[in-house]
Design a protein around this nucleic acid. Sequence first.
RNA 1: GCACCCGUAGCUCAGCUGGAUAGAGUGUUGGCCUCCGAAGCCAAAGGUCGCGCGUUCGAAUCGCGCCGGGUGCGCCA
Length: 580
Amino acid sequence: MNIQALLVSRFSAALAQLDAAGAAVPVSKSTRPEFGEYQFNGAMGLAKIKRCPPREVAQQILDVVELDDIAARCEIAGPGFINIHLAPAWLAQQAQITLADERLAIPKQPQQHIVVDYSAPNLAKEMHVGHLRSTIIGDAVAKALEFMGHHVIRQNHMGDWGTQFGMLLAHLNDRLQANEVAETALSDLEDFYRAAKVRFDEEEGFADRARQYVVKLQGGDAQCLALWQNFIDVSITHSEEIYSKLGVSLQRTDVMGESAYNPDLPNVISELQAQGVVVEDAGAQVAFLDELADKNGKPAVYIVQKSGGGYLYATTDLAAIRYRKTQLNASRTLIFTDARQALHFKQTEIVARKAGFLADTDRYQHCPFGMMLGKDGKPFKTRTGGTVKLVDLLDESIERADALLQTRENDFSTDTLALMAQQIGISAVKYADLSKSRTTDYIFDWDTMLSFEGNTAPYLQYAYTRIQSIFSKAGITPAELSASAVPIQIEADQEKALVTKLLQYQDTLEQMVDDATPHLLCTYIYELASLFMKFYEACPILKDTVSESDRQSRLALCLLTSRTMKNGLDILGIATLDKM
RNA sequence: GCACCCGUAGCUCAGCUGGAUAGAGUGUUGGCCUCCGAAGCCAAAGGUCGCGCGUUCGAAUCGCGCCGGGUGCGCCA
């Protein structure tokens, strides 16, 4: 159920009757309870066109709009707002329908093939905190799109190619010659990279060997490729350990590294030349983009091939667009990288469209996100100023969650506590990231994140476990409750507010998948949990004084809340526990 | 130099298809466990929405100009 969309259609029909078919239909949620749940704000604008007092126009609309079934009453307020108070009986009926449906009555969208490009670690190094946002946000959006009925193709655009591999392979070769196995040599990629860099800078002849390796690698030398493959395999395994720890859905089969496009790069250039999109300038192949010209009319410059003939990441990204269009049949692409690459992707899109690599109707969305900052507002670093490894960050969060659990009274076994610390710690980190609007920088603060109060994962997890606890105390399983199909009735204000929120889930999901903004879903679940807590405080469920029909109805609301929360938390990749 | 992003409560953040008295959380102060889990709920205090001009019946939201912070811009990714 999308209440907003339903109201828009009802008001559109009404406006058509009043010869105002083309007018805007501004329906929005009301800001205050006394203004109802929704309001229509179009009367003021229309009054201007019709040269008629706004409240009179509002009355005309109210006379013809068909809302008898869904609204208990509507009233005109202020300059001409139409406030809509939804009918409890209608809300109850919709809640009933939602409860009876496995998908919570959320219809699938017309299926599209959608590429979601996220995570994309650099295989030369270990994953650091900068990869957290791309991985977490991308995964949540991918799962949401799948739930909405789309065919999602995950693409992990790993950095597995480039001149740095010459140095790394030369170093790896030497280590293997010294009878070390690759897994051991590469057990810490950070150390390995540093060691190779030191030799590159200081050791006589090493830099030359490194350059030779680059040439051999690009030339397809079999021994060199085998060495490279060895390196890549070990490095991907490191990434997979992180994905597993994070509970992220990426698989090895989703890996489509930069190297995969290498053979196609000359074709991309010749295609661009044939289309007249690029020209030679100072020996390089360049696209001049008038679309992004500055105010003096100087076009933006986008280089697709270096003067020496070498390729750039622009070339690779264009090849990726072609591959995704022709091989993956994608009509929409979402790319999750940090905001610093915004200009690059804007330019890439323009060039791709000019070259016909994208159809006019295809969507190409760069989904940027800000940096993770420390409490001081500066880039998040270790105490010594180094890059924070992602694995260390996650382990610390689990440790902190564990320490917190130890301070509370409980009778859980050691194993259970360890599992809970894992689930709570990881969820806290993920939720802290997901719950903020992705486009801007955000401040990473352990204390806020793990305070377990307010808009945090533990609060949501706690709310969820309380509901499960109600079921077990009532001696009924969710499955039995579903089967009983008891009538839902809405009496208290808290019940009405809760059900209204429950019925706004579809609207939230639709917005989230359109804008790729998981924080909307986080806010929704938090508000839902909060409304549930208020309902729970105000409306007793299992107490002796409660009538059987109230009890059944309220249990049904518990179930619907629980299922909605579970659905949303699953999409976000936040673990739900039955007890904590 | 040019371009993009961001300035909202002490702190962390929502709100930005223009709508009524700008919202949460946290922190501060006070209240609620003989009562379904107090990791909870209730209440109070806390704001010139960076500044100015403009468009509009109506601006945190749109436009222009400043100020402050961040990021990017021909051969890294």
